[in-house]
Nucleic acid binder design. Structure first.
Lengths: 150, 150
DNA sequence: TACATTTGTATCGTTCACGATTTAATCTCT
DNA sequence: AGAGATTAAATCGTGAACGATACAAATGTA
């Protein structure tokens, strides 16, 4: 990184490929998520709730690294779709508890096949399993560092 | 990937860490870009134009993997800020040519220090140079595969 | 008990991202 | 040359992200 000029090129930076890969990966999910009539961020919220069907906005936000300015509108849309319920916590009136509805819970079965389908669509590609594992390790490490900075 | 249930968890997937890392990395740029009064996508367009100060919307789109539905409004905002000019191509009236203004060109010098500042903010972290290089290689490979699919 | 501080959500405004569609220019092929 | 196909931008509507701010509940402290 000694060359300032070179570092101004897109292809020499890390942020751009992250940004582009993120967008394009999300796009791969889209056709499968369309079948469930949900978006990718909504799918993320559902995955979190499928693990523990009752969590506060704050807890969800910590897992997704999002704040209420993003989550509140997102969760309201999910409430309108009857995927979740939003209720003020009795024990702490500041907090809003999100609970899965029957409907939201039922999507879980349909979603079970999604990761497999995604994996399939990469099956014939020239990235080895070891490379993916090592890649994900560094990605997680990077994410840890970034999350600390935020 | 034998366990479908496990694969439904966020942390086993690649898409979520990419999504989160992309957002958080962009956030690291924000304070530096604020000094130039530009956003991250605007910075990307400028980097492309600093290499070749006259390119069509289409050419820019190919490099950023974005289409006119995203680029047209983005470029219009940049035109309003007097960073670029938008003119119909004479040789092909369908095409719109984007040219850097004096103002847009002049930001280049201020931007030169940004990659260094970003690198500095990761300096004390526990990721080796080799790990980053290998990571970027896989990321680029992944991006290539994704771009082909799109 | 009062009062300042912190915490959890919500709201607002701006900018992106993107699917779907439209329009006009160009290309192709006969 | 003319008809159909392709290409390049633009437009529209929806859903995110996110900084800044507001507000009420809870917590800490004098």
């Amino acid at each position: 990184m000694s060359n300032k000029l070179a570092s101004l090129y897109l292809e020499n930076q890390l942020c751009f490929p992250l940004y582009a890969a993120s967008r394009l990966t999300t796009k791969i999910y889209t056709p499968f998520l369309n079948e469930l009539d949900i978006t990718y961020p909504q799918y993320l919220v559902l995955m979190i709730l499928w693990q523990h069907p009752e969590q506060s906005v704050n807890e969800i936000g910590k897992k997704l690294l999002l704040e209420s300015n993003t989550l509140t509108p997102l969760l309201k849309r999910m409430e309108q779709k009857n995927l979740i319920q939003r209720t003020r916590s009795k024990s702490d009136e500041r907090s809003v508890v999100i609970t899965l509805t029957e409907n939201g819970l039922s999507l879980r079965e349909k979603a079970l096949s999604i990761p497999e389908k995604i994996a399939d669509s990469f099956q014939d590609e020239s990235i080895s399993k070891e490379e993916v594992v090592s890649f994900k390790q560094t990605l997680d490490k990077l994410l840890g560092i970034l999350a600390e900075k935020a």
